[in-house]
Design a protein around this nucleic acid. Sequence first.
DNA 1: TTAGGTCTGATTGCATCCAATCACAAGAAA
DNA 2: TTTCTTGTGATTGGATGCAATCAGACCTAA
Lengths: 216, 216
Amino acid sequence: MVLVSNNDSATSHAIADDLKDRILEGKYKPGMRLIQDELAIEFKASRSPIREALRMLEADGLVTIKTHSGAWITELDFAEFEELYQIRERVEPLMLRLSIPHLTTKLIKELEATLEKLNEATTVQQFLKLDREFHLLTYEGAATSYLGEIVQRMWNTTQPYRRRYSQILEREHFTSAHLEHTLLMKAIKRADLDDAERILYGHIRRTRLELQDQAE
Amino acid sequence: MVLVSNNDSATSHAIADDLKDRILEGKYKPGMRLIQDELAIEFKASRSPIREALRMLEADGLVTIKTHSGAWITELDFAEFEELYQIRERVEPLMLRLSIPHLTTKLIKELEATLEKLNEATTVQQFLKLDREFHLLTYEGAATSYLGEIVQRMWNTTQPYRRRYSQILEREHFTSAHLEHTLLMKAIKRADLDDAERILYGHIRRTRLELQDQAE
DNA sequence: TTAGGTCTGATTGCATCCAATCACAAGAAA
DNA sequence: TTTCTTGTGATTGGATGCAATCAGACCTAA
């Protein structure tokens, strides 16, 4: 289960990947409109592949298309953001459970290295990037077809908001996250499925509640 | 949250809806190939809207597209079917929890009527149709944007397989389902969120395990 | 001033044509 | 016989032009 890159030769896929990066990096902000002609000119292609790319991004939840009207970068209100976190609480522990038994020693080494870098992160930028990397890596052992898609999609759509809201988080949050990540790592290493599930559930839940508190 | 019909004027949407019905009704069987030209002729349209419709169905998980190769009705192996049931076990109880507090008395009346018909169903066909109707109705109170999509998508993709596998289920299964549905209805009426979640979780889980037993 | 209607430019949706790619069959070599 | 190569038809991907639709400005009437 590769939750990272996606190499498909067709230009529509290439365009979709490129746009996806821009959205995840925050270059394209939620609510921004995308105009087919402009994109076509920029990518030196016709509107056909652009349209297909937009449909793919729509499937990823990154873009919202309204018939005869246009395409916008998906915009979440806080309720939707919260909803996605609630789904994550339920779904990611399952994916972790399915993954742990198939994690190779190589992957575990990689996980530990990422965790170390994560603990040393100083900027919010770094923290977000490494946090994402760490969690998605823990799922790499799951040979799932649908679960992986769902999880990836949720990480993608919430990405711009994690960036936005994490600015308001207290220092306290990062130390809690640090402790939970360490506990999670230990549970993974001794292949304790129930414990790992529980820690992850609590980790996501606590983050949601903290964001909830800060946001009002 | 309307999990039933979808009225969008654009022809690509109309085509997508039509194809969707055919797949869910079992006219188009998993593994069957879809050829753009043939569909274009049948729908008296060009290939552009057909292509868009296929992309939409891909997003719904009903169709699988391979670049430069073609489109097929999505085919699940048993492992994927099981995976989807595991996700349902985690996700649908959450949706039920979010729904119950907002169920109107009108909806509850409708639910009871559906349950009554469901208990009187004699053929497998009827059972499947009413079972789907009953469960999706219990979620109708949830004002969710993503959860609803996910749940609906899982019901859609597993539909052909529910039909296939339910043929091999014992009479025993239907009486268990009956009892669980009745318990669920009671929990819903007294708005007992925890109990409702637990019953639904067990209901989906038991079905999965029974199918697992029968299938090997 | 404000509400409603109409017009117009911008943009999307669809049709058609051509190019790129693939799958499969037929043939050649071992 | 088996395996590899090559070529050809079928099918998908992309480009271009036109029609349909929408949003916003402008005008008119109350």
